[in-house]
Computed example of a mutant assay.
Amino acid sequence: MIKFLEIQKITQKYSDEIHRAATRVIDSGWYLLGEETKRFEKNYARFIGTNHCIGVANGLDALRIILKANMELGIMQEGDEVIVPANTFIASILAITDNRLVPVLVEPDIHTYQIDDTKIEEAISPKTKAVMIVHLYGQCAYTDKIGEICKKHNLKLIEDNAQATGCKFNGKITGSLGDASGHSFYPGKNLGAFGDGGAITTNDPILAETAKTLANYGSNVKYVFDYQGLNSRLDEIQAAILDVKLSHLNEDNERRKEVARYYLEHITNPEVILPEVNDWNAHVFHLFVIRSAHRNELLQYLNDNGVQALIHYPVAPHKQKAYKEWNDLTLPVTEKIHNEVLSLPISQVITDEEAETIVKTVNSFRANDLKGQK
């Protein structure tokens, strides 16, 4: 079986460096808010191209804290609206509702799967305070039009950069395009920790200081609490490991692109819709997502023939029980995407032979043949 993602193989690539980093932390006796975290924050801010980086516990917390910081600073208040793509992973929306803000769902572009920038302006109301773009699957969601809309309507632009570390827009790295960005270092990400981890990047020094304080119980001085904060901190071992992997990220992303190019050039099955790539700098292929009207049959066929494929994500946020008040909404583009998408294995450790096998298996699928076998 070709696994969807082999994290052990990714770890083995840099095993010696990782072991040295982890041992250094263990021997130091200092496991939170120490020099390793400071070093990673500095290096990650430099990589992203922002003045500030705050390590936090996970990607969801990164987004929660960005919004909470804006509320503490009086920029937003309960009941204000945040525009967000309807087809995102639920964490983007959870961050909004957790702060008692109101998500306004906007349909994506069927070709890019990113928020449709032609539909954003019509969703703006007097209560709108921000647009949250999600660089879904590793592809840049930002457009000049989105930037212009935010400037015109005085809206904060927040990036959910959980899936796109290293992706670029006109030479700038995602995570540096808006007012603030949330990042995830979940183990399966392009830059993955050995557990949960996240970060906030921004060029706003006041927002950065507020976010840093909120992430540490609301305290900037020990036992003095300015806000009702959270306990959301990136630990020293995760920071040290991430710093090792960060030094190899561009190389890893390039390998992902090589695999993606091979898929795009060699998958010829007419029952499969391939992703569209207009700018190879604007995609780091956290996921390689295809679509098929026979998605479920294709998934079963791949799994039966030794290729582990996954669905990201089978149920749209507005159809989840967690948001039952939205269950009657009809969002046809979002629903079509969630009903048809399928993720093929892709990573920096996929071999050429594995990629060839995956392509051959996808190309050999025929839905009608399967129906005839029943």
Rank of each mutant, 00 (worst) to 15 (best):
A130D: 03
D27T: 11
A69T: 05
I311V: 12
E271D: 05
G34C: 03
Y301T: 00
K172F: 10
Y223V: 12
R256P: 00
W280A: 05
A355Q: 03
E41Y: 02
R261N: 10
N161Y: 10
K152L: 07
K38C: 14
I337H: 05
N43E: 09
P103E: 05
T357N: 11
A239C: 05
T357V: 13
P126V: 07
N51H: 15
F365S: 01
P270I: 06
P108H: 05
L299Y: 08
W30G: 15
L32C: 11
D27Q: 14
E35S: 10
V106S: 05
D226I: 14
D352A: 11
F288E: 00
A162T: 09
N305S: 04
P270C: 06
L155K: 00
W30Q: 14
Y217V: 11
K245W: 00
A22Q: 12
C53D: 01
G178H: 02
L242R: 01
R100E: 14
E209H: 12
W280H: 06
G188W: 09
A141C: 06
D235C: 12
D304A: 12
N161S: 14
E209N: 13
I350V: 10
E6C: 13
K145M: 10
E297I: 09
D116A: 08
V134E: 01
V56H: 00
P103R: 00
G34W: 02
V84W: 01
L249Q: 02
K319V: 04
I149V: 08
V289L: 10
I358Y: 01
A162G: 10
H19S: 13
L234T: 01
S343G: 08
R256S: 06
G59V: 03
N231I: 15
R255H: 14
D279L: 04
V359L: 06
S176K: 02
A215Q: 04
L342F: 02
T88H: 07
E6I: 13
A367G: 15
R39Q: 13
S347W: 01
I75F: 14
Q300L: 15
E36L: 09
I54L: 07
H153Y: 09
I350T: 05
P205H: 12
G29S: 06
N296P: 09
A282I: 05
E258F: 09
T268D: 15
D352G: 10
N70L: 12
C150I: 04
A293S: 13
E335F: 05
P103A: 05
P205Q: 10
L191Q: 02
N303D: 15
D328T: 15
F47G: 00
N253E: 08
S292P: 01
N203L: 07
N269S: 03
L342K: 00
K151W: 10
I206V: 12
F194I: 11
I66K: 01
L287F: 11
S247H: 09
